[in-house]
Simulated assay, not measured.
Amino acid sequence: MANKVMKSAEEALQGVLFDGMTIMAGGFGLCGIPENLIAAIRAAGVKDLTVVSNNCGVDDFGLGVLLAGGQIRKMISSYVGENKLFEQLYLAGKLELEFNPQGTLAERIRAGGAGIPAFYTRTGVGTLVAEGKEVREFDGALYVMERALTADLAIVKAWKGDRAGNLVYRKTARNFNPMMATAGKVTVAEVEALVEPGALDPNAIHTPGIYVDRILAGPVYEKRIERATTRPRESVGAAAGEEV
């Protein structure tokens, strides 16, 4: 078995980064993002990137640091509402955006990993989403054709992984990571815990190691929450509907 274990994010990305490449980055908001690999891409300074991700982090964290560094030319996303810089660059014509319904984005990535070049969906028919795309009728309903997505590099984050590259994700941090792991020409995974082969329950593995080319144990995870909303604690009387 080839050695897939890398000592650092920098080593894991050695020889796979180049200007103008397409990168898939797992995560939903800031949940389940490959924090260490994103930081290493920022430090490498590659530019003119096309990034496929549900969103682009926040202004100072996640993929937002690549945006702030002027490294991203185009985003293929489904949600961009947490990043003010994203809005500014897009409105100024300095950032390209290919906007997708969220389920369509997920299916485009899954199709790319499965070797399916395109598929038809009813989502987006009759809207801006369908402009410039083929629309066909099946059984009396209209469907828009969506092309699959692949990438030069997929960076994903898992909870646990073994030295063979088998991955287990934790709860909602799974999100886009499993499908992206299948759709990259090279897939690099970072994990919170790196274990020996055989330590993971085979029935619990979400991404088989065949899809993972390199793996590392991430040294630090901030796991930020992009927005926390709180309210003052109500008194017992107010909670019961009494006048206070």
Rank of each mutant, 00 (worst) to 15 (best):
E137G: 04
A154G: 13
Q102I: 06
M21N: 10
A164H: 10
R110Q: 13
T229V: 15
Y90L: 04
R227L: 14
R214N: 07
V58W: 08
A12P: 04
L128A: 14
E134V: 09
D59Y: 00
T150W: 15
R108L: 02
Y79T: 08
A106I: 14
G27V: 02
G112Y: 08
G64H: 01
S77K: 03
Q88F: 00
L97C: 10
G218L: 04
N83S: 07
G126R: 14
V46W: 00
C31M: 12
L66I: 02
P34G: 05
A154V: 08
K74Y: 09
N55R: 05
R108M: 12
V129C: 07
A12R: 03
P197S: 13
L149R: 14
M21V: 10
L89D: 00
N54A: 12
G237W: 00
F61L: 03
L13C: 01
L37G: 01
I225R: 03
G32A: 03
Q88S: 15
K7I: 02
A39Y: 00
T182K: 15
A43W: 05
K4C: 05
S77T: 14
L216T: 08
G62Q: 05
I33F: 04
K160T: 03
L128I: 06
C56K: 00
V51W: 01
L67I: 06
A111L: 10
P232M: 05
G165L: 04
I210N: 13
D213Q: 12
I116G: 03
Y221I: 00
A106C: 09
R170Y: 15
S8M: 10
K94P: 02
T172I: 08
E137S: 12
G237N: 12
A43E: 14
E243V: 14
K185E: 15
N54V: 14
F61A: 12
T123I: 15
A106S: 12
K4P: 07
V236S: 05
Y143H: 12
L37W: 02
W159F: 09
V195K: 13
M179D: 07
K185T: 15
M75C: 07
D19C: 08
K94T: 02
N36C: 02
C56N: 09
K84A: 09
V80K: 04
L95Y: 07
T123E: 14
D48M: 05
V195H: 03
T22K: 13
G29E: 06
G113R: 14
Q102C: 11
M1S: 15
A25Y: 02
R163G: 03
G62E: 04
E131H: 02
F176E: 04
D60N: 13
R233C: 06
L216E: 04
E243T: 11
N203Q: 10
S235W: 00
G198Y: 01
T182M: 14
R136M: 11
V144E: 01
